[in-house]
Design a protein around this nucleic acid. Sequence first.
DNA 1: CATGATGCCTAGCGCTACAAGGCATAGTCC
DNA 2: GGACTATGCCTTGTAGCGCTAGGCATCATG
Lengths: 117, 117
Amino acid sequence: MAENNSNFMSGVPELLILRLVREKEMYGYELVQAIRERSNDAIALGEGVIYPVLHALERDGALSSSRKTVNGRSRVYYTLTATGVRRLDDLAGNWSRLTEAIQSVLGGPAIGGVSHA
Amino acid sequence: MAENNSNFMSGVPELLILRLVREKEMYGYELVQAIRERSNDAIALGEGVIYPVLHALERDGALSSSRKTVNGRSRVYYTLTATGVRRLDDLAGNWSRLTEAIQSVLGGPAIGGVSHA
DNA sequence: CATGATGCCTAGCGCTACAAGGCATAGTCC
DNA sequence: GGACTATGCCTTGTAGCGCTAGGCATCATG
C-alpha cells in the first residue's frame, strides 16, 4: 500500500557493536560490559543479544573472528572487515537521520526552520 | 539472569503521536501525514501503525476520542488526557536518555567526560 | 461510473530483542 | 576437596512491535 521505511527502529545493537569493534578487536563478553559502561548503565544488552548479532555479522562478512587463548581462557575476538566499515557508516547515518527526524517532530512546528527546500 | 531494559527501542510511534496531539486535537489520517511532513519524509508510519497505537492509548486512558463530522466526513479526534501528558513526559525522557546513551557509545571513550560521579 | 483522495479499521506475519537457561574453566574462600 | 563466583561461549523459545496488505465507506473528479 505504501513504501515505508522497513523497520526503521532496529539495528541499534548492531550499530553499537560495530562501532566498538572499530576501535579495537573485542570479544563478546567484553562487548557486553563495554556497552554497559560506556552508556553509564543506560543500555544493558545481555549476552543473549550480543552473541546472535555477532554471529549474524560474521555470516554477512561484516566481522571476522579469531580464537585466542588468554590465561587459559578461550576467547573469540572480532575485527571489522571492509564490509563491516561500510555497514557501520550506513547504520550510523540511518541512526543520525532518524534521531534528527524525531527531534524535528518533537521540537514543534518548524522552530528554527529546517529549510528542506 | 539480569534485569535489562525491557525492549529499550520501542514506543517511538507512541511518542510521536502523543507529542503531536499535545499541540492540538488530531485524527488518525491527519497524524499519518503530519508525521511524514514534520519529519521531512524521513519517517513514514502507515495507518496500520497509527490506528492500533491510537486505540491502545485510548484504552490506557492516555487519549480520549470524540467523533466529529466535517464535510460529510466522519473523523475521530483525539485529545491528550492528564495521563497522556505524564506518558508523554515519560517517553520523551526515556528517548532522550536513550539517544544520549547511544551517542555516548558512538562518540568514543569519554571525549568530553560525562562526569557522572 | 471508474478512479483517486479521504477516513476508518483489522488480521496476520516477520523480525528483533529478550529471558532463561546450559556448558566449561579459573580463581577464591573455607 | 567442595562450593561459589567470575569469566567466557552458546542456543532455544517467546513476546511484542511495527509492517504489509488488505477491507469498507464517503466524496470529488473526470
